[in-house]
Computed example of a mutant assay.
Amino acid sequence: MAVRAERPDPHTAVMRELLVRYLDAWTPAVLRSHRRATYVETVPDDFATSALRVFGEFADRLTGHQLDVVILGSLTTALTELGAAPGLSLRSVADPADLTVTGPVLAHLDVGAGALDEPTAWRLVASLGPGKAREVLLALPPAAADEVTEYRTRLRAAGLPYAVTVELADDDRRVRLLLFATSSDKHLATFKNELWAADEFAGIRYRDPRDAEHSLVDISLTPQLLPLRRALLDELARRGTCTVADLQHHTLHETIYRPADTVGVLTSAASSGAITREPAKGRLSPRTVVSRRP
């Protein structure tokens, strides 16, 4: 009798892909501008293995640089072998309180996978956040909108002012909350691009935890934009009048969408008469002024 293969957890599959996609962008960027950087991983098995494989693909760029990989937990033989590449320094730390880092840092902190609990994760955020070019990818249980707002406040207090918070919901309505926080506007935009470029095979849909309608959105390079339309019209009603660039900034910092998605929403809203624009014709540009129609 054939043994039925266990179906991989869809949340894990999507989070692993997002991590790999972002590391593909983060690694060459950080090696281009710094001689030493640190990656922190709290899931010693799948995620650490995937990260080390990404770093191995940039072996040519590690020449003359040092990338410290710190595992919170135990090192396996497989990890030790993958971390033996020139330019990589692999070590483990049993107690998170003993963690030390150098240079730019990206930390993947997963509460629920491994032994990391939520209070320890937030202590790590507070200790890792201050400093130049620090970033965290934090996976948590689902939380209410007011809790998510508080999380963003804590991230800003830790020196990570730019963040995206997104719920990953599977077909069985199980939800994980993913937070990416950084001190770089550019890196926030990069992460969001990877967020929507992820494969759809895992059966995961996204949801903005601060969306009052709790709309689920399929992962796609051209996602459904109704939640963004509601958010932008609400913001425009609050402001009265502003530029397209202002709303692109709001999209980047306060929603799960990308700045480029703003133009599509506003173009549709102008065509339907929901907003006015100046100039009245032509393509929307960052300097186009828009107003909410009374």
Rank of each mutant, 00 (worst) to 15 (best):
M1H: 13
A2K: 13
A5G: 10
P10H: 01
P10Q: 01
M15L: 15
M15K: 12
E17Y: 05
L18H: 04
L23G: 07
A25P: 00
T27D: 02
P28H: 12
P28C: 10
A29E: 08
H34Y: 15
R35A: 15
R36Y: 09
Y39L: 15
V40N: 02
D45Q: 11
D46R: 05
T49L: 14
S50E: 10
V54A: 10
V54Y: 03
V54W: 01
E57A: 11
F58A: 12
A59R: 15
L62K: 12
G64Q: 06
H65C: 15
H65L: 08
Q66S: 12
V69I: 13
V70F: 03
L72E: 03
L72R: 04
L72Y: 00
G73M: 05
T76I: 07
T80D: 05
E81A: 11
E81Q: 07
A85Q: 11
R91V: 06
V93M: 02
D95H: 08
D95F: 09
P96M: 01
A97F: 09
G103F: 06
P104K: 01
P104R: 03
V105S: 10
D110C: 10
V111E: 00
G112I: 00
D117F: 07
E118R: 15
P119M: 02
T120M: 14
T120E: 14
S127H: 10
G131M: 03
G131N: 08
K132I: 13
A139N: 08
A144R: 13
D146G: 00
T149Y: 09
T149H: 13
E150D: 14
R154Q: 15
A158L: 05
P161W: 14
A163W: 03
A163D: 00
V166D: 04
L168N: 05
A169Q: 13
V175K: 08
F180D: 01
F191K: 01
F191N: 03
N193L: 12
D199W: 04
E200S: 01
R207V: 09
P209F: 01
E213C: 11
H214L: 14
D218W: 08
D218M: 13
L221Q: 08
P223L: 02
L225F: 01
L226E: 14
P227F: 07
R229P: 00
R230E: 06
A237D: 14
R238V: 06
G240R: 03
G240Q: 11
T241W: 04
H249A: 15
T251H: 06
E254T: 12
I256V: 13
Y257Q: 08
A260K: 01
T262H: 01
V263R: 05
A269V: 03
G273T: 05
I275V: 12
P279S: 12
G282T: 11
L284A: 01
L284E: 10
P286C: 04
V289M: 13
V290K: 04
